[in-house]
């Protein structure tokens, strides 16, 4: 009966605009310049696909409406045309070149890991993350970051809070408007470190150190998850990034370092 109730609920919501307003249906625009570029690229290709789809499906539906036996349409006899084949090979090729140009420039930017002001070593474990701020000579800050959602919420005995499965006991903190380089590796199996809104995803692989970077333009809390199947609790090792002002970051660092002593 519960399923039936849910089903009618779904049917109702499906046709109300509410569902679309409450639920994110698209990639987030991103709070970094690279994220914004990725978003634009994604939308560009999406619209090209929509346009091609409209033409192809339009022709097909026209044919399905009017070129039917029930309307007494007599089948035509053509079955070959070299010139048409050449046209629809060349035009898509040109469109692809048009896509490849912005894609290449965005990719090169993502791979530009130079001149970072802060280096953070991120290590994936079954099933938590460890963060280590690489400071050169001075004492490194390092800590583990575990899921903080209580088991009772996961097993449905208490009500779920709004950050269900996306909250940790100790978030990684970085300053705003600063290029931060993440060096990503793993201790056991392969994991993947993904925070959608700051435009970063890179696999954490034992024996390798991958690099990626982010420069976040806006203070706030950004949440992500592990995106490579890493065992039973793959769905339970989230990432929480707090982007704060330079002053707050300095204070946080000080507090952290004195904690370590």
């Amino acid at each position: 009966m519960k399923i039936l109730k849910n089903f009618s609920l779904i049917l109702l919501t499906m046709f109300s605009t509410n569902l679309w307003a409450q639920n994110q249906v698209n990639m987030s625009g991103g709070f970094t310049d690279v994220g914004a570029e990725i978003y634009d690229l994604h939308m560009l290709i999406l619209w090209i696909c929509v346009a091609i789809g409209a033409i192809v499906f339009g022709i097909m539906f026209y044919s399905m409406m009017f070129h039917t036996k029930s309307r007494g349409h007599k089948p035509a006899d053509f079955h070959e045309s070299t010139s048409v084949e050449i046209i629809w090979t060349v035009i898509p090729f040109l469109i692809l070149i048009g896509m490849a140009v912005p894609a290449t420039s965005t990719l090169l930017e993502i791979y530009d890991n130079d001149n970072a002001e802060i280096d953070i070593l991120v290590t994936g474990y079954q099933w938590k993350w460890k963060y280590e701020y690489l400071e050169g000579d001075s004492q490194n800050i390092e800590f583990y970051s575990n899921l903080s959602t209580p088991q009772s919420e996961i097993y449905n005995t208490t009500e779920k809070n709004e950050n269900y499965l996306l909250e940790v006991d100790e978030p990684v903190v970085i300053p705003v408007n600063t290029k931060v380089r993440f060096l990503i590796t793993a201790n056991d199996v392969i994991h993947s470190w993904w925070v959608p809104e700051i435009g970063v995803k890179k696999d954490a692989i034992p024996g390798f150190i991958n690099e990626t970077w982010s420069k976040v333009n806006e203070e706030g809390i950004y949440r992500g998850q592990c995106t490579e199947l890493c065992g039973a609790y793959h769905g339970f090792m989230p990432i929480e990034v707090h982007v704060v002002s330079q002053e707050e970051y300095a204070l946080w660092k000080q507090a952290k370092q004195s904690q370590g002593d």
């Binding site: 994110q24 987030s28 269900y164 998850q225």
Partner: peptide, 27 residues
């Protein structure tokens, strides 16, 4: 939609923001 909004694959459980579309998917 849920993929673009940030839901990883191969997870047995998910954040609340993905709930509506997942229920739809299951139905």
């Amino acid at each position: 939609f849920v993929g673009l909004a940030g839901m990883p694959r191969r997870v047995p459980d998910y954040a609340l923001q993905f709930a509506d579309f997942n229920m739809m998917s299951s139905i």
